[in-house]
């Protein structure tokens, strides 16, 4: 096994007279190019040593090393070996590379060091011990039931905002059973920031459960609705521009800012209005379906029991 760790020490096989061995050893190992390069003088050695803070923990200070052995000449490899491990005389070169006693870490003499691991740990590692079974009891069972019920109830609360789902090619008959009726929820606007409130205080002001905007209904949209849609789109674009302007104005001054706000609110009002139009369109569709829904409404409660 070749060992080019961070603390190689000296190798007798390396070309002599080229400087300190640890000067060649970067954090990644022994660099042949660096090693064979002429030395850059004492300051260069020091600089390099300083550049690798992690190396300090393992390698001696380059100048200290020489002094430590009470001589100005470099210590011979054998000296290093005998310092770190007095029994290592017969051990050969490889093992002597460490400045500390590796037996203290738990490796016996002549033992191979483990290979470097270069991959992440497994996703589902084996466990040495089997997990203990879960606590069971009346309280635990009740909480489990509560949790599952709560999860289903949450879905039927008006707070659960559904994403408009994409249209399916075939409308499934079962969809009708799945339909959930939600109560309307009108937040207490007094407790909310003013910007939360849609401008019109009408019945539909509450951010009630989003009506599923079915694109499939597009076919039934009349021409006027198309026009309305276009207007809305245009307005949205205009709105975006305005908000940009508004941002600029904000930097300008406060009075202007207020103006911008008002403009903005107007736009919001318009938007709201348009949305209502749209909703009415959807409302019609919903009421159309409602006749066939009695069955589903009835079975609504029964479905709760089969919840996960």
């Amino acid at each position: 096994m070749e060992e080019y760790g961070a603390c190689q020490g000296l190798k007798s096989s390396w070309p002599s007279g080229r400087g300190l061995a640890r000067e060649w050893v970067g954090p990644t190992g022994w660099d042949r190019n660096k090693a064979l390069r002429p030395r850059g003088g004492r300051s260069a050695v020091l600089q390099r040593w300083n550049a690798y803070p992690s190396a300090r923990a393992f390698c001696l200070h380059p100048f200290l090393a020489g002094r430590h052995f009470g001589c100005t000449v470099l210590p011979k490899p054998r000296d290093l070996v005998s310092r770190t491990n007095p029994m290592a005389g017969s051990q050969g070169r490889g093992r002597a590379a460490y400045t500390f006693n590796i037996e203290a870490v738990g490796f016996g003499r002549g033992e191979k060091l483990p290979d470097v691991v270069l991959k992440p740990p497994p996703l589902f590692p084996d466990t040495d011990y089997k997990p203990v079974p879960l606590k069971a009891g009346e309280g635990e069972d009740y909480m489990l039931a509560l949790k599952q019920e709560l999860r289903e109830t949450m879905k039927r609360m008006p707070y659960y905002i559904e994403t408009p789902e994409e249209k399916q090619d075939i409308e499934r008959y079962s969809k009708r059973y799945m339909k959930v009726y939600k109560e309307e929820w009108i937040p207490d606007w007094r407790r909310l920031p003013r910007e939360m409130m849609p401008r019109k205080k009408c019945k539909k002001a509450g951010p009630k459960s989003e009506k599923v905007k079915d694109t499939g209904k597009g076919a039934s949209l009349t021409n006027t609705a198309d026009v309305l849609k276009k207007i809305e789109e245009l307005e949205k674009r205009g709105d975006g521009e305005k908000s940009d302007e508004e941002n600029e104005e904000k930097e300008g001054g406060k009075e202007k800012n207020q103006e911008g706000d008002e403009e903005d609110d107007d736009a919001a009002e318009q938007e709201e209005y348009d949305e209502e139009e749209q909703e009415e369109e959807n409302d019609y569709i919903n009421s159309y379906f409602e006749d066939g829904d009695d069955f589903g409404a009835d079975s609504d409660d029964n479905m709760d029991e089969a919840t996960y």
């Binding site: 707070y159 939360m196 849609p198 951010p207 989003e210 919001a268």
Partner: peptide, 15 residues
């Protein structure tokens, strides 16, 4: 969309 953000914030504030 601004409208949806408003709704979501209302729900989060409510809770």
């Amino acid at each position: 969309s601004l409208d949806q953000v408003k709704k979501a914030l209302c729900v989060l504030i409510q809770h």
